[in-house]
Design a protein around this nucleic acid. Sequence first.
DNA 1: GACCTGATGA
DNA 2: TCATCAGGTC
Lengths: 263, 263
Amino acid sequence: MLELRLVQGSLLKKVLEAIRELVTDANFDCSATGFSLQAMDSSHVALVALLLRSEGFEHYRCDRNMSMGMNLQNMAKMLRCAGNDDIITIKADDGSDTVTFMFESPNQDKIADFEMKLMDIDSEHLGIPDSEYQAIVRMPSAEFLRICKDLSTIGDTVIISVTKEGVKFSTAGDIGTANIVCRQNKTVDKPEDATIIEMQEPVSLTFALRYMNSFTKASPLSDQVTISLSSELPVVVEYKIAEMGYIRFYLAPKIEEDEDMKS
Amino acid sequence: MLELRLVQGSLLKKVLEAIRELVTDANFDCSATGFSLQAMDSSHVALVALLLRSEGFEHYRCDRNMSMGMNLQNMAKMLRCAGNDDIITIKADDGSDTVTFMFESPNQDKIADFEMKLMDIDSEHLGIPDSEYQAIVRMPSAEFLRICKDLSTIGDTVIISVTKEGVKFSTAGDIGTANIVCRQNKTVDKPEDATIIEMQEPVSLTFALRYMNSFTKASPLSDQVTISLSSELPVVVEYKIAEMGYIRFYLAPKIEEDEDMKS
DNA sequence: GACCTGATGA
DNA sequence: TCATCAGGTC
Protein backbone atom coordinates (compact mmCIF):
# COMPACT_ATOMS: atom_id res chain seq x y z
CA MET A 1 0.00 0.00 0.00
CA LEU A 2 1.25 3.39 -0.98
CA GLU A 3 -0.16 6.74 0.02
CA LEU A 4 1.72 9.99 -0.47
CA ARG A 5 0.07 13.25 0.47
CA LEU A 6 1.61 16.40 -0.91
CA VAL A 7 0.14 19.63 0.38
CA GLN A 8 1.85 21.77 -2.19
CA GLY A 9 0.45 19.88 -5.14
CA SER A 10 1.63 22.46 -7.63
CA LEU A 11 5.13 21.08 -7.16
CA LEU A 12 4.14 17.78 -8.69
CA LYS A 13 2.37 19.54 -11.51
CA LYS A 14 5.49 21.56 -12.29
CA VAL A 15 7.67 18.46 -12.11
CA LEU A 16 5.59 16.77 -14.76
CA GLU A 17 5.51 19.79 -17.01
CA ALA A 18 9.28 19.89 -16.66
CA ILE A 19 9.98 16.36 -17.81
CA ARG A 20 7.09 15.25 -19.98
CA GLU A 21 8.59 16.78 -23.09
CA LEU A 22 11.84 14.92 -22.58
CA VAL A 23 10.62 11.54 -21.37
CA THR A 24 7.57 9.71 -22.60
CA ASP A 25 7.40 6.76 -20.18
CA ALA A 26 9.21 6.18 -16.91
CA ASN A 27 9.16 4.22 -13.70
CA PHE A 28 8.48 6.14 -10.52
CA ASP A 29 10.28 4.41 -7.67
CA CYS A 30 8.84 4.57 -4.23
CA SER A 31 10.77 3.69 -1.13
CA ALA A 32 11.11 4.84 2.45
CA THR A 33 13.54 7.45 1.21
CA GLY A 34 11.15 9.11 -1.16
CA PHE A 35 9.51 9.24 -4.52
CA SER A 36 12.00 9.21 -7.35
CA LEU A 37 12.46 8.71 -11.04
CA GLN A 38 15.33 8.13 -13.38
CA ALA A 39 14.88 7.97 -17.11
CA MET A 40 16.56 8.58 -20.41
CA ASP A 41 14.97 10.88 -22.91
CA SER A 42 13.38 9.22 -25.92
CA SER A 43 16.49 9.61 -28.07
CA HIS A 44 18.67 8.21 -25.29
CA VAL A 45 20.88 11.23 -25.10
CA ALA A 46 19.81 12.99 -21.94
CA LEU A 47 18.97 11.59 -18.52
CA VAL A 48 16.54 12.93 -15.96
CA ALA A 49 16.75 12.18 -12.27
CA LEU A 50 14.04 13.31 -9.90
CA LEU A 51 13.91 12.99 -6.13
CA LEU A 52 11.09 14.03 -3.84
CA ARG A 53 12.14 13.07 -0.30
CA SER A 54 9.60 11.47 1.98
CA GLU A 55 10.06 14.22 4.55
CA GLY A 56 8.63 16.70 2.09
CA PHE A 57 5.24 14.97 2.10
CA GLU A 58 2.67 15.71 4.76
CA HIS A 59 1.94 12.01 4.91
CA TYR A 60 4.19 9.34 3.43
CA ARG A 61 3.29 5.71 3.59
CA CYS A 62 5.15 3.20 1.48
CA ASP A 63 4.92 -0.31 2.93
CA ARG A 64 7.41 -1.76 0.51
CA ASN A 65 9.42 -0.55 -2.43
CA MET A 66 7.37 -0.13 -5.56
CA SER A 67 8.17 0.77 -9.10
CA MET A 68 5.31 2.24 -11.07
CA GLY A 69 5.57 2.63 -14.81
CA MET A 70 3.71 5.64 -16.07
CA ASN A 71 3.17 7.42 -19.30
CA LEU A 72 4.24 10.92 -18.36
CA GLN A 73 2.10 12.59 -20.98
CA ASN A 74 -0.99 10.99 -19.51
CA MET A 75 0.10 11.61 -15.97
CA ALA A 76 0.62 15.28 -16.83
CA LYS A 77 -2.84 15.39 -18.36
CA MET A 78 -4.37 14.20 -15.11
CA LEU A 79 -2.29 16.50 -12.94
CA ARG A 80 -3.41 19.44 -15.04
CA CYS A 81 -6.84 18.73 -13.63
CA ALA A 82 -5.59 19.60 -10.17
CA GLY A 83 -5.84 23.20 -9.04
CA ASN A 84 -2.59 24.88 -8.21
CA ASP A 85 -3.59 25.13 -4.57
CA ASP A 86 -4.87 21.59 -4.38
CA ILE A 87 -3.48 18.93 -2.10
CA ILE A 88 -2.45 15.93 -4.18
CA THR A 89 -2.41 12.38 -2.87
CA ILE A 90 -0.86 9.53 -4.83
CA LYS A 91 -2.29 6.10 -3.96
CA ALA A 92 -1.61 2.58 -5.13
CA ASP A 93 -2.50 -0.79 -3.69
CA ASP A 94 0.11 -3.52 -3.60
CA GLY A 95 0.01 -5.51 -6.79
CA SER A 96 -2.46 -3.17 -8.40
CA ASP A 97 -1.90 -2.17 -11.99
CA THR A 98 -3.30 1.29 -11.48
CA VAL A 99 -2.39 4.41 -9.57
CA THR A 100 -4.82 6.97 -8.22
CA PHE A 101 -4.26 10.71 -7.99
CA MET A 102 -6.54 12.46 -5.55
CA PHE A 103 -6.97 16.24 -5.64
CA GLU A 104 -8.48 18.13 -2.70
CA SER A 105 -9.28 21.79 -3.10
CA PRO A 106 -7.98 23.96 -0.25
CA ASN A 107 -11.43 24.39 1.27
CA GLN A 108 -12.22 20.70 0.82
CA ASP A 109 -15.22 21.58 -1.32
CA LYS A 110 -13.96 19.64 -4.27
CA ILE A 111 -12.40 16.23 -4.15
CA ALA A 112 -11.36 14.53 -7.35
CA ASP A 113 -9.72 11.20 -7.97
CA PHE A 114 -8.14 10.17 -11.22
CA GLU A 115 -7.10 6.59 -11.80
CA MET A 116 -4.45 5.77 -14.35
CA LYS A 117 -3.23 2.45 -15.73
CA LEU A 118 0.34 1.57 -14.97
CA MET A 119 2.71 0.25 -17.61
CA ASP A 120 5.53 -2.26 -17.62
CA ILE A 121 8.67 -0.39 -18.48
CA ASP A 122 12.13 -1.84 -18.80
CA SER A 123 14.07 0.28 -16.44
CA GLU A 124 17.76 0.67 -16.73
CA HIS A 125 18.52 2.28 -13.44
CA LEU A 126 22.02 3.67 -13.57
CA GLY A 127 24.04 4.30 -10.52
CA ILE A 128 25.14 7.88 -10.94
CA PRO A 129 28.35 8.43 -9.02
CA ASP A 130 28.78 11.65 -7.13
CA SER A 131 31.58 13.18 -9.13
CA GLU A 132 33.86 16.07 -8.46
CA TYR A 133 33.27 18.79 -11.01
CA GLN A 134 35.79 21.20 -12.44
CA ALA A 135 33.29 23.99 -12.23
CA ILE A 136 29.90 24.57 -10.69
CA VAL A 137 27.87 27.58 -11.75
CA ARG A 138 24.81 28.73 -9.84
CA MET A 139 22.73 31.40 -11.48
CA PRO A 140 19.13 32.63 -11.78
CA SER A 141 17.10 30.05 -13.64
CA ALA A 142 15.26 32.75 -15.59
CA GLU A 143 18.54 34.09 -16.87
CA PHE A 144 19.72 30.66 -17.96
CA LEU A 145 16.40 30.15 -19.71
CA ARG A 146 16.71 33.45 -21.54
CA ILE A 147 20.29 32.74 -22.61
CA CYS A 148 19.45 29.31 -24.00
CA LYS A 149 16.47 30.70 -25.87
CA ASP A 150 18.41 33.65 -27.28
CA LEU A 151 21.32 31.50 -28.42
CA SER A 152 18.90 29.10 -30.10
CA THR A 153 17.94 31.86 -32.51
CA ILE A 154 21.54 31.97 -33.70
CA GLY A 155 22.89 28.42 -33.48
CA ASP A 156 22.23 24.81 -32.51
CA THR A 157 24.93 24.24 -29.94
CA VAL A 158 26.24 26.16 -26.98
CA ILE A 159 29.78 26.22 -25.73
CA ILE A 160 29.83 26.80 -21.99
CA SER A 161 33.17 28.10 -20.75
CA VAL A 162 33.87 28.78 -17.12
CA THR A 163 36.68 30.89 -15.76
CA LYS A 164 37.05 32.43 -12.35
CA GLU A 165 35.54 35.66 -13.55
CA GLY A 166 32.44 34.26 -15.06
CA VAL A 167 30.70 31.86 -17.33
CA LYS A 168 30.50 32.35 -21.07
CA PHE A 169 27.82 30.91 -23.33
CA SER A 170 28.75 30.94 -27.01
CA THR A 171 27.20 29.81 -30.24
CA ALA A 172 27.67 30.20 -33.96
CA GLY A 173 25.26 29.91 -36.85
CA ASP A 174 24.66 31.03 -40.39
CA ILE A 175 23.91 34.60 -39.54
CA GLY A 176 26.78 35.11 -37.11
CA THR A 177 28.08 34.31 -33.69
CA ALA A 178 27.13 35.16 -30.13
CA ASN A 179 28.83 35.25 -26.76
CA ILE A 180 27.09 35.96 -23.49
CA VAL A 181 29.20 36.40 -20.41
CA CYS A 182 27.75 36.34 -16.91
CA ARG A 183 30.03 37.65 -14.24
CA GLN A 184 30.11 36.20 -10.80
CA ASN A 185 27.96 38.32 -8.51
CA LYS A 186 27.43 37.36 -4.90
CA THR A 187 26.55 40.78 -3.58
CA VAL A 188 23.08 41.13 -4.80
CA ASP A 189 19.95 42.41 -3.08
CA LYS A 190 18.04 39.19 -3.42
CA PRO A 191 19.92 35.90 -3.03
CA GLU A 192 17.98 34.41 -5.93
CA ASP A 193 19.62 36.92 -8.26
CA ALA A 194 23.14 35.79 -7.40
CA THR A 195 25.53 34.20 -9.85
CA ILE A 196 28.13 32.13 -8.10
CA ILE A 197 31.01 30.20 -9.62
CA GLU A 198 32.96 27.52 -7.84
CA MET A 199 35.82 26.57 -10.06
CA GLN A 200 38.64 24.08 -9.60
CA GLU A 201 39.96 24.62 -13.10
CA PRO A 202 38.68 26.29 -16.25
CA VAL A 203 36.45 24.17 -18.42
CA SER A 204 34.84 24.58 -21.81
CA LEU A 205 32.27 22.16 -23.18
CA THR A 206 29.80 22.02 -26.04
CA PHE A 207 26.17 20.95 -25.81
CA ALA A 208 23.11 20.72 -28.01
CA LEU A 209 20.85 23.67 -27.30
CA ARG A 210 17.81 21.61 -28.06
CA TYR A 211 18.28 19.66 -24.85
CA MET A 212 19.26 22.67 -22.80
CA ASN A 213 16.01 24.29 -23.84
CA SER A 214 14.13 21.24 -22.69
CA PHE A 215 15.87 21.34 -19.34
CA THR A 216 14.84 24.93 -18.78
CA LYS A 217 11.22 23.80 -18.69
CA ALA A 218 12.00 23.10 -15.02
CA SER A 219 12.60 26.79 -14.32
CA PRO A 220 9.25 27.27 -12.55
CA LEU A 221 10.49 24.87 -9.86
CA SER A 222 13.33 27.04 -8.68
CA ASP A 223 14.68 30.57 -8.91
CA GLN A 224 18.18 29.21 -9.27
CA VAL A 225 19.80 26.59 -11.44
CA THR A 226 23.10 24.83 -10.87
CA ILE A 227 25.27 23.76 -13.78
CA SER A 228 28.08 21.33 -12.97
CA LEU A 229 30.75 20.83 -15.58
CA SER A 230 33.74 18.57 -16.09
CA SER A 231 35.51 17.42 -19.20
CA GLU A 232 34.55 13.87 -20.07
CA LEU A 233 31.50 13.99 -17.80
CA PRO A 234 27.93 14.79 -18.64
CA VAL A 235 26.89 18.23 -17.52
CA VAL A 236 24.41 18.28 -14.67
CA VAL A 237 21.71 20.93 -14.78
CA GLU A 238 19.99 20.90 -11.42
CA TYR A 239 16.85 22.61 -10.16
CA LYS A 240 16.28 22.27 -6.44
CA ILE A 241 12.76 21.58 -5.32
CA ALA A 242 12.15 23.48 -2.12
CA GLU A 243 12.25 21.29 1.01
CA MET A 244 11.89 18.15 -1.08
CA GLY A 245 14.69 17.32 -3.43
CA TYR A 246 15.66 18.11 -6.99
CA ILE A 247 15.38 17.50 -10.69
CA ARG A 248 18.70 16.87 -12.38
CA PHE A 249 19.31 16.68 -16.08
CA TYR A 250 22.42 15.02 -17.46
CA LEU A 251 23.72 15.59 -20.96
CA ALA A 252 26.93 14.39 -22.55
CA PRO A 253 29.09 17.06 -24.15
CA LYS A 254 29.53 17.05 -27.89
CA ILE A 255 32.92 15.86 -28.97
CA GLU A 256 34.92 18.49 -30.77
CA GLU A 257 35.13 16.39 -33.94
CA ASP A 258 31.43 16.97 -34.43
CA GLU A 259 32.15 20.54 -35.31
CA ASP A 260 34.50 19.67 -38.17
CA MET A 261 32.22 17.01 -39.55
CA LYS A 262 29.21 19.18 -40.01
CA SER A 263 28.91 20.99 -43.31
CA MET B 1 36.93 52.12 -36.39
CA LEU B 2 33.37 52.62 -35.35
CA GLU B 3 31.94 52.47 -31.86
CA LEU B 4 28.46 53.74 -31.04
CA ARG B 5 27.13 53.37 -27.53
CA LEU B 6 23.42 53.76 -27.04
CA VAL B 7 22.24 53.76 -23.45
CA GLN B 8 18.61 53.41 -24.39
CA GLY B 9 19.12 50.24 -26.39
CA SER B 10 15.39 49.60 -26.69
CA LEU B 11 15.28 52.43 -29.24
CA LEU B 12 17.41 50.44 -31.64
CA LYS B 13 15.34 47.34 -31.02
CA LYS B 14 12.18 49.28 -31.86
CA VAL B 15 13.76 50.80 -34.95
CA LEU B 16 14.50 47.35 -36.31
CA GLU B 17 11.08 45.99 -35.52
CA ALA B 18 9.69 49.03 -37.34
CA ILE B 19 11.53 48.53 -40.62
CA ARG B 20 12.38 44.84 -40.91
CA GLU B 21 9.01 44.03 -42.42
CA LEU B 22 9.41 46.64 -45.13
CA VAL B 23 13.08 46.33 -46.00
CA THR B 24 15.05 43.11 -46.18
CA ASP B 25 18.58 44.40 -46.70
CA ALA B 26 19.97 47.88 -46.32
CA ASN B 27 23.11 49.88 -45.85
CA PHE B 28 23.56 51.67 -42.56
CA ASP B 29 25.62 54.79 -43.14
CA CYS B 30 27.82 56.06 -40.44
CA SER B 31 29.32 59.53 -40.41
CA ALA B 32 30.16 62.27 -37.95
CA THR B 33 26.54 63.39 -38.23
CA GLY B 34 25.02 60.15 -37.12
CA PHE B 35 23.87 56.68 -37.92
CA SER B 36 21.47 56.62 -40.82
CA LEU B 37 19.78 54.45 -43.35
CA GLN B 38 17.90 54.97 -46.54
CA ALA B 39 16.30 52.11 -48.38
CA MET B 40 13.48 51.19 -50.69
CA ASP B 41 11.10 48.47 -49.66
CA SER B 42 11.45 45.17 -51.46
CA SER B 43 8.83 46.05 -54.07
CA HIS B 44 10.45 49.44 -54.69
CA VAL B 45 7.37 51.40 -53.86
CA ALA B 46 8.07 52.87 -50.45
CA LEU B 47 11.20 54.45 -49.06
CA VAL B 48 12.46 54.47 -45.51
CA ALA B 49 14.86 57.03 -44.12
CA LEU B 50 16.26 56.68 -40.62
CA LEU B 51 18.47 59.09 -38.75
CA LEU B 52 19.98 58.63 -35.32
CA ARG B 53 22.09 61.73 -34.64
CA SER B 54 25.48 61.26 -33.07
CA GLU B 55 24.52 63.54 -30.17
CA GLY B 56 21.95 60.98 -29.09
CA PHE B 57 24.60 58.38 -28.37
CA GLU B 58 26.44 58.30 -25.09
CA HIS B 59 29.61 57.62 -27.00
CA TYR B 60 29.98 58.11 -30.73
CA ARG B 61 33.17 57.32 -32.52
CA CYS B 62 33.25 57.10 -36.28
CA ASP B 63 36.73 57.71 -37.66
CA ARG B 64 35.59 57.77 -41.22
CA ASN B 65 32.37 57.34 -43.11
CA MET B 66 31.29 53.76 -43.38
CA SER B 67 28.46 52.03 -45.11
CA MET B 68 27.50 48.70 -43.64
CA GLY B 69 25.18 46.37 -45.52
CA MET B 70 23.00 44.36 -43.21
CA ASN B 71 20.22 41.90 -43.48
CA LEU B 72 17.62 43.54 -41.29
CA GLN B 73 15.85 40.32 -40.43
CA ASN B 74 19.07 38.90 -39.01
CA MET B 75 19.96 42.13 -37.29
CA ALA B 76 16.54 42.15 -35.64
CA LYS B 77 17.08 38.58 -34.49
CA MET B 78 20.24 39.58 -32.72
CA LEU B 79 18.78 42.71 -31.19
CA ARG B 80 15.94 40.65 -29.78
CA CYS B 81 18.58 39.00 -27.62
CA ALA B 82 19.21 42.33 -25.92
CA GLY B 83 17.19 43.13 -22.84
CA ASN B 84 15.00 46.20 -23.06
CA ASP B 85 17.10 47.94 -20.44
CA ASP B 86 20.40 46.94 -21.99
CA ILE B 87 22.98 49.37 -23.26
CA ILE B 88 23.76 48.55 -26.88
CA THR B 89 27.10 49.25 -28.53
CA ILE B 90 27.62 48.86 -32.26
CA LYS B 91 31.22 48.18 -33.25
CA ALA B 92 33.02 47.66 -36.52
CA ASP B 93 36.66 47.77 -37.45
CA ASP B 94 37.73 49.56 -40.61
CA GLY B 95 37.62 47.20 -43.53
CA SER B 96 36.02 44.43 -41.50
CA ASP B 97 33.22 42.46 -43.08
CA THR B 98 31.44 42.01 -39.79
CA VAL B 99 29.68 44.19 -37.26
CA THR B 100 29.43 43.49 -33.56
CA PHE B 101 26.50 44.31 -31.33
CA MET B 102 27.37 44.41 -27.66
CA PHE B 103 24.67 44.27 -25.00
CA GLU B 104 25.36 45.25 -21.41
CA SER B 105 22.76 44.58 -18.77
CA PRO B 106 22.07 47.58 -16.51
CA ASN B 107 24.00 46.07 -13.60
CA GLN B 108 26.86 45.00 -15.86
CA ASP B 109 26.53 41.39 -14.77
CA LYS B 110 25.76 40.16 -18.25
CA ILE B 111 27.70 41.21 -21.29
CA ALA B 112 26.87 39.76 -24.65
CA ASP B 113 28.41 40.30 -28.03
CA PHE B 114 26.83 39.23 -31.27
CA GLU B 115 28.80 39.33 -34.47
CA MET B 116 27.05 39.50 -37.80
CA LYS B 117 28.38 39.25 -41.32
CA LEU B 118 28.00 42.34 -43.45
CA MET B 119 26.70 42.22 -47.01
CA ASP B 120 27.47 44.11 -50.17
CA ILE B 121 24.37 45.99 -51.12
CA ASP B 122 23.91 48.27 -54.10
CA SER B 123 22.75 51.44 -52.54
CA GLU B 124 20.88 54.02 -54.46
CA HIS B 125 21.06 56.91 -52.08
CA LEU B 126 18.54 59.49 -53.16
CA GLY B 127 18.81 63.09 -52.24
CA ILE B 128 15.43 63.89 -50.77
CA PRO B 129 14.71 67.58 -51.15
CA ASP B 130 13.04 69.43 -48.31
CA SER B 131 9.76 70.24 -49.92
CA GLU B 132 6.95 72.56 -48.97
CA TYR B 133 3.82 70.60 -48.24
CA GLN B 134 0.26 71.66 -48.82
CA ALA B 135 -0.75 70.11 -45.55
CA ILE B 136 0.96 68.71 -42.50
CA VAL B 137 -1.05 66.68 -40.02
CA ARG B 138 0.30 65.81 -36.61
CA MET B 139 -1.70 63.34 -34.60
CA PRO B 140 -1.31 60.59 -32.00
CA SER B 141 0.52 57.64 -33.54
CA ALA B 142 -1.79 55.16 -31.83
CA GLU B 143 -4.78 56.82 -33.43
CA PHE B 144 -3.22 56.70 -36.88
CA LEU B 145 -2.37 53.05 -36.33
CA ARG B 146 -5.91 52.27 -35.35
CA ILE B 147 -7.37 54.12 -38.33
CA CYS B 148 -5.15 52.35 -40.85
CA LYS B 149 -5.92 49.00 -39.32
CA ASP B 150 -9.65 49.63 -39.22
CA LEU B 151 -9.80 50.85 -42.78
CA SER B 152 -7.82 47.82 -43.96
CA THR B 153 -10.70 45.63 -42.96
CA ILE B 154 -12.90 47.48 -45.45
CA GLY B 155 -10.69 48.43 -48.37
CA ASP B 156 -7.19 48.37 -49.84
CA THR B 157 -6.57 52.07 -50.26
CA VAL B 158 -7.07 55.13 -48.13
CA ILE B 159 -7.95 58.59 -49.33
CA ILE B 160 -6.49 61.18 -47.00
CA SER B 161 -8.22 64.53 -47.32
CA VAL B 162 -7.16 67.56 -45.35
CA THR B 163 -9.20 70.67 -44.82
CA LYS B 164 -8.78 73.37 -42.22
CA GLU B 165 -11.21 71.63 -39.93
CA GLY B 166 -9.65 68.25 -39.93
CA VAL B 167 -8.30 65.26 -41.74
CA LYS B 168 -10.51 62.61 -43.29
CA PHE B 169 -9.46 59.03 -43.97
CA SER B 170 -11.74 57.22 -46.40
CA THR B 171 -11.88 53.85 -48.00
CA ALA B 172 -14.24 51.71 -50.01
CA GLY B 173 -14.46 48.00 -50.51
CA ASP B 174 -16.81 45.20 -51.41
CA ILE B 175 -18.70 45.34 -48.16
CA GLY B 176 -19.10 49.09 -48.04
CA THR B 177 -17.32 52.35 -47.40
CA ALA B 178 -15.82 54.11 -44.43
CA ASN B 179 -14.86 57.66 -43.50
CA ILE B 180 -13.02 58.65 -40.38
CA VAL B 181 -12.64 62.34 -39.65
CA CYS B 182 -10.21 63.66 -37.06
CA ARG B 183 -10.79 67.25 -36.08
CA GLN B 184 -7.97 69.53 -35.19
CA ASN B 185 -7.57 69.61 -31.42
CA LYS B 186 -4.80 71.62 -29.85
CA THR B 187 -6.38 72.12 -26.45
CA VAL B 188 -5.82 68.78 -24.96
CA ASP B 189 -4.59 67.74 -21.51
CA LYS B 190 -1.56 65.91 -22.74
CA PRO B 191 0.34 67.31 -25.72
CA GLU B 192 0.80 63.82 -27.15
CA ASP B 193 -2.96 63.61 -27.64
CA ALA B 194 -3.09 66.69 -29.83
CA THR B 195 -4.13 66.68 -33.45
CA ILE B 196 -2.73 69.65 -35.30
CA ILE B 197 -3.20 70.61 -38.90
CA GLU B 198 -1.04 73.08 -40.76
CA MET B 199 -2.64 73.62 -44.11
CA GLN B 200 -1.67 75.85 -47.02
CA GLU B 201 -4.41 74.50 -49.24
CA PRO B 202 -6.78 71.55 -49.14
CA VAL B 203 -5.37 68.29 -50.45
CA SER B 204 -6.76 64.84 -51.09
CA LEU B 205 -4.56 61.88 -51.97
CA THR B 206 -4.91 58.12 -52.24
CA PHE B 207 -2.48 55.53 -50.85
CA ALA B 208 -2.20 51.79 -50.54
CA LEU B 209 -3.17 50.79 -47.01
CA ARG B 210 -0.76 47.88 -47.09
CA TYR B 211 2.17 50.27 -46.88
CA MET B 212 0.53 52.57 -44.38
CA ASN B 213 0.08 49.59 -42.09
CA SER B 214 3.75 48.75 -42.42
CA PHE B 215 4.67 52.30 -41.51
CA THR B 216 2.64 52.15 -38.32
CA LYS B 217 4.99 49.46 -37.02
CA ALA B 218 7.08 52.43 -35.93
CA SER B 219 4.40 53.61 -33.51
CA PRO B 220 6.24 52.37 -30.40
CA LEU B 221 8.96 54.90 -31.19
CA SER B 222 6.81 57.97 -30.77
CA ASP B 223 3.49 59.11 -29.37
CA GLN B 224 2.94 61.33 -32.37
CA VAL B 225 3.16 60.89 -36.09
CA THR B 226 3.45 63.58 -38.73
CA ILE B 227 1.89 63.15 -42.14
CA SER B 228 3.03 65.61 -44.82
CA LEU B 229 0.98 65.78 -47.98
CA SER B 230 1.22 67.49 -51.35
CA SER B 231 -0.21 66.63 -54.73
CA GLU B 232 2.44 65.11 -56.94
CA LEU B 233 4.74 64.40 -53.98
CA PRO B 234 5.16 61.24 -51.97
CA VAL B 235 3.52 61.45 -48.58
CA VAL B 236 5.94 61.54 -45.68
CA VAL B 237 4.96 59.65 -42.55
CA GLU B 238 7.38 60.61 -39.83
CA TYR B 239 7.98 59.27 -36.34
CA LYS B 240 10.37 61.31 -34.25
CA ILE B 241 12.85 59.38 -32.15
CA ALA B 242 13.31 61.21 -28.86
CA GLU B 243 16.53 63.24 -28.68
CA MET B 244 17.96 61.35 -31.62
CA GLY B 245 16.27 61.79 -34.94
CA TYR B 246 13.48 60.16 -36.88
CA ILE B 247 12.16 57.45 -39.09
CA ARG B 248 10.46 58.73 -42.21
CA PHE B 249 8.47 56.68 -44.65
CA TYR B 250 7.78 57.95 -48.17
CA LEU B 251 5.04 56.63 -50.39
CA ALA B 252 3.84 57.88 -53.77
CA PRO B 253 0.12 58.59 -54.06
CA LYS B 254 -1.99 56.44 -56.32
CA ILE B 255 -3.01 58.14 -59.49
CA GLU B 256 -6.74 58.66 -59.81
CA GLU B 257 -6.91 56.53 -62.96
CA ASP B 258 -6.05 53.55 -60.79
CA GLU B 259 -9.42 53.81 -59.19
CA ASP B 260 -11.31 53.57 -62.47
CA MET B 261 -9.17 50.78 -63.78
CA LYS B 262 -9.79 48.40 -60.99
CA SER B 263 -12.81 46.38 -61.87
C1' DG C 1 -12.29 44.29 -24.25
C1' DA C 2 -8.68 43.88 -27.93
C1' DC C 3 -4.05 43.09 -29.30
C1' DC C 4 0.24 41.04 -29.08
C1' DT C 5 3.56 37.71 -27.52
C1' DG C 6 4.86 33.43 -25.97
C1' DA C 7 3.79 28.52 -25.52
C1' DT C 8 2.02 24.33 -27.06
C1' DG C 9 0.43 20.46 -30.06
C1' DA C 10 0.16 18.50 -34.84
C1' DT D 1 8.58 23.66 -38.32
C1' DC D 2 4.10 25.78 -38.60
C1' DA D 3 -0.44 26.82 -37.03
C1' DT D 4 -3.36 27.28 -33.22
C1' DC D 5 -4.36 28.66 -28.41
C1' DA D 6 -3.83 31.05 -23.99
C1' DG D 7 -2.22 34.56 -20.98
C1' DG D 8 -0.47 39.14 -20.09
C1' DT D 9 -0.66 43.97 -21.17
C1' DC D 10 -2.65 48.25 -22.66
